[in-house]
Design a protein around this nucleic acid. Structure first.
Lengths: 214, 214
DNA sequence: TAGATTGTTAATCGATTAACAATC
DNA sequence: TAGATTGTTAATCGATTAACAATC
C-alpha cells in the first residue's frame, strides 16, 4: 500500500516464522565455538530439510559459499538484521500482573535491543522488588507516555475484557507494534503490527494431539 | 505407527491450529445468544474464507445443515470434543517463578478441564497467597508424583538451562504431554506430545514486521 | 416450491522438495 | 584439479479457493 517498502517480493509468513528458529540454533553453535555449517548439518540439527534452509535463506541473499557452507557468526548476524534485531525498540508493559511481570523480566534479561521504558497497571502503585528499572505508572498516563516517549511496542498483559480498550489507547497514541498475550483478537488499524501469543489456542492444540494418542 | 489410532486420514497441522480459534469465536457468539451462523457470516467474523471453514469442518463430519447454516451451540461442543476438551487432564506446573504462577492462574481460572494437581520448584517452599489450591513441592518429588498421580501434562516454566532435565524427568515418569514455555526445543520420545510457546520467536517475528514498516 | 447454504469435487495457488549446474 | 556444497530452477506435493450439485 505505502511506497515506503523497499522489498521486492513478499516473503511468506511461513519463512519469517522459521527465521528466529534458525537464529536460535546458530546462536547455540556460536556458543559451542563452531565456525561453519552446511545446510545439510543444519538440517539435521533443526529438523527442516537442507533444501528448505537454502531456499529460505536465498529469499534474502546468498549468505553461503559453495563448497564450504555458511559462516555461523555471519549468518547469525545477517538473520538478526533481517529480523530487525539490530534496531532498538522502546517497550511499555500494560498490565503488571504475574504475566506482565514475567514478560518484563524475560525482556530485560534476554532481549537487549528491546528496552522497557514504562510499566502500566490500573492498580495505583505496585512496586516490584526485583524489577526496579521502571516505575509502575497508572494507566491514566498511558496515552501521553506512549506519545511523548515515542514508544514502539506495547505488551498487552491485561485481562481479556480490557484488551481492546488498551489496544485502542496505544494505537491512537501512535504505537507501531502490539504484542498481545490476551485470549482475544484485537481490532487495530492496518499499520499497527500485531503479534499474538494465544495461550489458550496453544493448550487446546496440545489437548488435540494428546487425546488423539490415547 | 501404532495401531491405536482410529483416524482414517491425517489432519494437517494447519487445520488443527484453526480449530481453537473457531471455537473461541463460537463461544463469543454463544454468549451473545446467537443460535445459528452461516459459513459466510463466520468468515467475516473470523477472517478465514467461507470455503475454508466448510472444508476444515468437513474433515471431521458434516456439522451443518443445507439452507440453514451451523448451530452455534452444537458446533461449539463438537469442536471442543474434536480437540479433546471434554476430557480431563491432570497438570503439574514445573518452575513456579512469575511465568509459572501466571500459567497456573490462567489454567485454574479459565480451563476447567485442566486440573492443576501439583506445583514444583527448586526453591524450598514458595507459598502463594493467591493460589492456595495446590501446595508447592520441591523438584525432588517430581518423578514420583507424576508416576503416582498419573499426571497427563507438565507445564515447563523453568529457566532454559533446566528445561531438558525437567523434560527427561517427567518423560521417564510417564508424562503424556509437555507444554513448553522455555526458549529451547526439547528432545523427547515420539510418544510425548510437545506444544511449544516460543516467546522469543514470537517477539522476533514482531520485530521483523515492524522494522519492515519503518 | 423457491431460496439458502451446506458438503464435496475440481481448479488454482503456493510452499516444499528434488535435482543439478555454478563455483568456491 | 577434484570434492563439496551452494544458489536456483524445475517437479512435486499439499493447502486454499472456487464452483456447483445436493438438500434442507
Amino acid at each position: 500500500m505505502s511506497a515506503g517498502s523497499t522489498k521486492e517480493k513478499q516473503i511468506s509468513k511461513a519463512v519469517i516464522k522459521r527465521l528466529p528458529r534458525y537464529r536460535r540454533y546458530l546462536g547455540e553453535l556460536q556458543k559451542r565455538g563452531i565456525e561453519k555449517i552446511s545446510s545439510k548439518d543444519l538440517s539435521e540439527l533443526i529438523g527442516y530439510t537442507a533444501s528448505q534452509i537454502r531456499q529460505d535463506l536465498n529469499n534474502f541473499g546468498g549468505f553461503g559459499q559453495q563448497g564450504y557452507g555458511y559462516s555461523v557468526n555471519y549468518l547469525y548476524d545477517e538473520i538478526g538484521s533481517i529480523l530487525g534485531l539490530d534496531k532498538e525498540y522502546k517497550i511499555v508493559i500494560v498490565g503488571y500482573g504475574r504475566l506482565g511481570q514475567a514478560m518484563a523480566s524475560y525482556i530485560s534479561n534476554n532481549e537487549s535491543n528491546f528496552k522497557i521504558v514504562g510499566i502500566f497497571d490500573v492498580r495505583q502503585i505496585i512496586q516490584d522488588v526485583e524489577f526496579k528499572d521502571a516505575q509502575v505508572m497508572t494507566c491514566a498516563n498511558l496515552a501521553g507516555f506512549v506519545k511523548h516517549e515515542n514508544v514502539d511496542i506495547a505488551v498487552i498483559t491485561v485481562p481479556a475484557e480490557k484488551a481492546q480498550i488498551v489496544a485502542d489507547t496505544v494505537s491512537e497514541a501512535g504505537i507501531k507494534g502490539v504484542w498481545n498475550f490476551t485470549t482475544v483478537d484485537l481490532d487495530l488499524p492496518e499499520d499497527v503490527v500485531v503479534e499474538n501469543v494465544h495461550i489458550s489456542d496453544s493448550l487446546h492444540a496440545l489437548a488435540y494431539y494428546m487425546h488423539d494418542e490415547l
